[in-house]
Simulated assay, not measured.
Amino acid sequence: MRILIVEDEPKTGDYLYKGLKESGYVPDLARNGHDGLHLASEQHYDLIILDVMMPGLDGWQVLTELRRKLSTPVLFLTARDDLADRIKGLDLGADDYLVKPFSFAELLARIRTLLRRGPPREKELLQLADLQIDVLKHKVTRAGVRIQLTSKEFALLHLLVAHEGEALSRAQIASQVWDMNFDSDTNVVDVAIRRLRAKVDEPFESRLIHSVRGIGYRCEVES
């Protein structure tokens, strides 16, 4: 299980990293909110441990940005045992709240509880403009017209629409659709995008799949 620790206090961050590693987890440590947000956006984690009080980008802001893209369980750490703060964190999408100082045994117990819950149920139906994806039936229609896709094309379109408005890098796409590390000499992503556009975009009036220069691709309705 991979866990991301976002903690600006050096001793606490090192303590958590060492303890989680010795407990059999695979931790990464970010020393500030900006680095934590970047790592969470670029890699898959089963759980995020997030400190609230950080300079610059604090825990509230990091969580707000995370919840626009990810449903990864988040355990808040804070030195402030204030009911209003706890309610704020939960309202923003935190899954649990632990007040400093805490026992490492309690932290491990809460981590186990959060990981046992498993991922939230995936949406069965995705909609973007006149494009509709029935996830369970693997059925795609646009403007009422059925579109036949291969399994990889379906997985690619599903990924793009599920992250509507988000620029996904070629490395992210290759990792999640083909379960492979992206090689800059490999054009598998670009070829697949071209084939997908030929089926999903070109026969229709508006385009939904857009190139993001220097990054990759994004799916959204452009005004």
Rank of each mutant, 00 (worst) to 15 (best):
L63R: 02
D58L: 13
G144R: 02
L57I: 14
L208S: 05
V177S: 10
H210R: 12
Y25S: 10
N187E: 12
R170I: 04
T72I: 09
G36T: 01
V140L: 01
H38F: 08
L98S: 10
L156F: 05
S175M: 06
I215W: 12
A105H: 14
W60I: 10
R146I: 06
G89N: 03
R121S: 12
F182E: 03
A155V: 07
P203C: 15
V99Q: 08
I193G: 08
V6H: 00
M1D: 10
R207D: 13
S41V: 02
T12G: 11
D51G: 06
Y25L: 11
I3E: 05
L157M: 08
N187P: 08
E202R: 13
L16H: 00
K11L: 15
L159C: 09
E164N: 04
V188Y: 11
L75E: 10
H210A: 14
V74F: 09
Y217A: 08
A30D: 05
L77C: 04
A109C: 07
G118F: 10
G13L: 11
G13Y: 05
T12W: 11
T113I: 04
D201K: 07
H158S: 11
D8K: 00
R142A: 05
I147Q: 05
V74K: 05
L92G: 02
S71A: 14
L63H: 04
L159P: 03
K123D: 13
L128S: 01
C219W: 14
R80S: 05
Y45L: 12
P55F: 10
G93Q: 06
I173Q: 01
D58C: 12
L107M: 09
T72D: 03
G144I: 05
E7C: 07
G24P: 01
V6C: 00
E124I: 02
V99D: 07
E164F: 03
V26F: 13
C219Q: 15
W60S: 02
L37W: 03
L136R: 14
G144H: 00
L39I: 07
L160Q: 04
G33Q: 02
E7K: 04
D95V: 02
E220I: 14
E42S: 08
V140D: 03
S103F: 07
A105R: 13
D95M: 01
I133W: 04
L16E: 00
E205Q: 15
K199M: 03
R218S: 15
G33I: 04
E7D: 09
R197K: 13
D185G: 15
F76Q: 01
E220Q: 15
A79K: 08
I193S: 12
K11S: 11
L149T: 00
T12I: 13
L128D: 00
Y217L: 07
F102S: 09
G216V: 15
R170D: 10
E202N: 15
L37Q: 08
R146D: 11
D179K: 06
Q61I: 15
L125W: 10
N181V: 08
R117Y: 12
F204S: 05
T78C: 07
